[in-house]
Computed example of a mutant assay.
Amino acid sequence: MSLELKTNEKKIIMLFEVIGHYQFPNDILQDYHTHMFCHRGSAAFLFNGKQFTCRGGEFVFWFAESQLSNLTFSKNYKATALLIQKDFLNDNIPNQNWSIDAMLHSKEHPVLQLNDTKEKVLSTFQLLYYKFGDKGHRFYTEALKLQMQMFLLDMWHMFATEYESRKRSLQSGTLYEQFLLLVQAHCMKEREVQYYANQLSISAKYLNYVCKQNSGVSASEWIQRYTKERIVLLLQNKNLNIAEIAEKLEFSSRSFFTRYVKKVLGVTPSAYKNRLG
């Protein structure tokens, strides 16, 4: 049977079964990152404005504070769910460049087909939950943080594998699909439309036309959107200072980076970090 979550408990990590017409409390979905492996049945939902379905043998990941709605489960639905409090997860992200790509990829593609990795995923869930409950450990805090980082590296490995597979399949896709893939891969360093036009062997004007026809959004706007998402994730990383972030994004100076952030976020990098506390 499913575990009834009491919102006033505010546990850092929760592991439980979801069966049938379970209802996730809204504050749980806002405060926790949700990882769920579907054993049978299906779950349908709207995620950031797109419709998705997760079926038996698939894995779904929802960020805390995501635009998640219309969540419904089939009568025979059964899943194992692992919920991690958002601040605890964010505070223990390994300092790896791939974390940004993994996070952004999972926002676009929250449902993954696991194939032969089912047992590994469930084992990873159990290891993290066990370490959370092992409060008698002499080095409990340090051990739990390390286990949290190991969990994230395992999740990123899974997303990286799926990302590379999708990347190979899109290489023969439309110009628009190839452009978006290139932006995801290179916008940390390349923020000019001409760079992507050169990669696709077309003119910048034609690339803008292709983007407008497919999405109503210009190529430069797409580049800015993806860059903005990466900047936000980097600013949320407490292990990085502003100079280090500017260097990662290869801005020529900290002042240029500050102006760019003010343009896309409406506030300076320092003001954004101060809001986070």
Rank of each mutant, 00 (worst) to 15 (best):
L3V: 07
E4S: 12
I12N: 15
G20M: 02
H33G: 10
H35S: 05
M36L: 07
M36W: 00
G41I: 01
A43E: 13
F47A: 15
N48P: 02
K50H: 15
Q51P: 11
T53E: 13
F61C: 09
Q67I: 14
Q67S: 12
T72D: 12
S74R: 06
N76P: 05
K78S: 15
T80D: 08
D87E: 15
L89I: 09
N92L: 07
N97H: 12
N97Y: 14
N97P: 05
W98I: 14
L104A: 14
L104N: 13
P110M: 03
S123R: 05
F125M: 05
F132A: 06
G133M: 11
H137W: 07
D154M: 10
M155D: 09
M158V: 03
M158Q: 10
R166E: 07
S169R: 12
S169P: 00
Q171I: 09
Q171C: 14
L175H: 10
Q178V: 14
L182V: 01
V183L: 00
C187P: 03
K189G: 08
Y196A: 08
A204E: 14
N208W: 03
V210L: 01
V210A: 07
G216P: 09
A219C: 11
V232D: 00
V232Y: 00
L233A: 11
Q236A: 09
I242E: 02
F251T: 06
R254D: 14
G266L: 00
R275A: 05
L276W: 01
